[in-house]
């Protein structure tokens, strides 16, 4: 689990963890919409750490400066990852499709700005193996074809390096709905 704060938003604590071989996907799916305060993301649609944090940054920008749009942090995370303004489209990033690799994102408003010891229990409902959240790990198991469809990247876009593919995703996330 990685716990961090963005320098510009010191009062929000962001916890992110990647789990593999998750065994209770059905249970999580049932709870995902209502009772869970954190976002459950299909890890096979996350290509890079940058893609993920870029969406979380946008969540906090929207939350702080465009208050009308923000529902809950968890649904907002999915929405901001998505390249479309449709909520139904954003569900693809959740557990709509079966996946036993799941990324949990929790955004918590706090009164102070110190990083405390990570609370490892927040995601304890997820029964799986905790894995390292890093680019190599994500891109290797990522479903790039589906991502291309979601972000409308046609075949004329043939990046030479992984960071160029990631850049296209960040572009879409930053401009989505504007």
């Amino acid at each position: 689990m990685i716990v961090s704060r963005f320098p510009q938003f010191p009062h929000y604590e962001i916890s992110i963890a990647l789990y593999e071989d998750v065994t209770n996907v059905e249970e999580l799916r049932a709870k995902a919409n209502s009772s869970l305060p954190f976002a459950l993301i299909n890890a096979s649609l996350v290509f890079s750490v940058e893609q993920l944090y870029s969406a979380v940054y946008r969540v906090l920008i929207e939350h702080t400066y465009n208050k009308i749009q923000t529902a809950s942090f968890s649904s907002e995370c999915l929405l901001r990852l998505s390249a479309s303004t449709k909520v139904s489209e954003s569900q693809k990033f959740g557990l709509k499709y079966p996946s036993n690799r799941i990324i949990c994102v929790n955004i918590e408003e706090t009164t102070d700005d110190s990083i405390e010891r990570p609370d490892e229990t927040i995601f304890e409902l997820v029964k799986g193996k905790s894995a390292v959240l890093e680019d190599e790990n994500l891109s290797k198991k990522c479903d790039a074809d589906t991502l291309r469809k979601i972000y409308k990247l046609d075949q004329t876009f043939q990046p030479e390096r992984p960071d160029e593919f990631s850049r296209a995703l960040v572009n879409a996330i930053q401009l989505r709905g504007l």
Partner: peptide, 10 residues
Amino acid sequence: PKLIACDAYN
């Protein structure tokens, strides 16, 4: 240049 972030509201 690569776009890193955009806060259009501000």
